[in-house]
Design a protein around this nucleic acid. Structure first.
Lengths: 205, 205
DNA sequence: AAAACAATTAAACAAACGTTTAATTTAAAC
DNA sequence: GTTTAAATTAAACGTTTGTTTAATTGTTTT
């Protein structure tokens, strides 16, 4: 599946509109108008509105696991690596937040006829990598054992997404303007998540 | 705003459909059919589809803050109260998860013309109550100071919602059937969140 | 029982939806 | 320069959308 410039333009326009207004809240006419193309081009290139979304997921699907394994393989101290993993996750998820929002929403209504197998398989692989890392930390005595590893990423991703979904609320609460949100995510929010997970992994009841 | 049985029936049907298929993904005809009423009754009772949603938010809006303050005013040890607060939050949010999902998604697209002021004001009040509780714990030396209190609830709610939004993923990952999800939420998931927040609040860098 | 009001209905409304068509322009291959 | 294929267009397709209408049935009030 290689895409020409015009197809990519359509995908990225659709990503923005889908994440802003939802899949059902976005019309093909809106997409074509915003992308500056004729409405028939969507069917011409992608077949249908649903297949357009599938193409978008594929387009944003990428090399996260390699980056993750690269960070781990540096063999720094566990707590340091943990910080790096979390910073990586937040950075990646933030960059692709729009597509993740679409996935979150469309996947949670089982109704739609979209193929999420690829996305889920990748998610499972990433979890396995993190699970192995945590266990190695437990074996060396750095991490404690009374931890639900499967829910670790739930907390990492959940914290980020809740912040993102309630962006406007946090902007007023934290006195952030649009431009300072970006730095807040990569500093305060990232540090909060890092502290949370480090605390949890070193916590003895 | 007092509602008769038929209006409540419409609201609860709409809640289910909105949370399953989204606001735009749900048609007035679907709602009326599922609720077993004539399509014109929606306009007749609520005026429009959007006002129907506003009525739903109002209907689910409730006495959470009183429950929260009641738990705190029992003056048990801080760590014990913290557990109780988190269990309460998860219980409440889980019961009203459908409406919260709708709010999350409709609020995050600023596009829609829905009045969220009530919801946001309540949210801010709840945060103030929790903030006061944490600070009293810090003063008595039970909780540490290096914590971003404003992001505490982000982690609590975010963890729950991420679990809920990816329900199907976690069902296969954790080998849960539909009936055991309920108990997983109130046991493992709640315990995980309790441990996470307790760890974070007692964590010294 | 008559009058007044609320509840309910089937039908119709214009507007917007996703998709397809058939014709035309642009670009590439020979 | 002609042929062939890809890209692009405006228009039309049949559905579905949210909302309104005008008529009818139920239920109180007087």
């Amino acid at each position: 599946m290689d895409l020409n410039d015009k197809q990519i333009q359509i995908l990225e326009t659709a990503e923005e509109l889908f994440s802003e207004n939802g899949f059902d809240g976005t019309s093909v006419r809106q997409i074509s108008k915003a992308a500056g193309i004729n409405i028939a081009m969507v069917s011409y290139y992608f077949g249908s509105k649903e297949k357009l979304l599938e193409a978008l997921l594929l387009y944003r699907m990428s090399d996260f696991r390699m980056q993750l394994e690269s960070v781990i393989s540096k063999n720094k101290p566990h707590l340091e690596t943990l910080d790096a993993i979390i910073a990586l996750i937040v950075k990646r998820i933030h960059r692709n937040r729009r597509t993740h929002k679409i996935i979150n929403f469309e996947y949670s209504n089982g109704s739609r006829n979209i193929d999420f197998d690829n996305y889920l398989a990748q998610k499972k692989e990433n979890l396995n990598v993190i699970e192995a890392f945590v266990k190695s930390g437990q074996d060396t005595g750095v991490f404690s054992y009374n931890v639900n590893i499967q829910l670790l990423t739930t907390t990492i991703l959940g914290t980020y997404f809740h912040f993102y979904y309630n962006n406007k609320y946090y902007q007023t609460l934290l006195n952030l303007d649009n431009s300072s949100v970006e730095s807040y995510v990569h500093n305060e929010l990232t540090h909060h998540i890092q502290n949370t997970i480090k605390a949890l992994l070193t916590y003895e009841k």
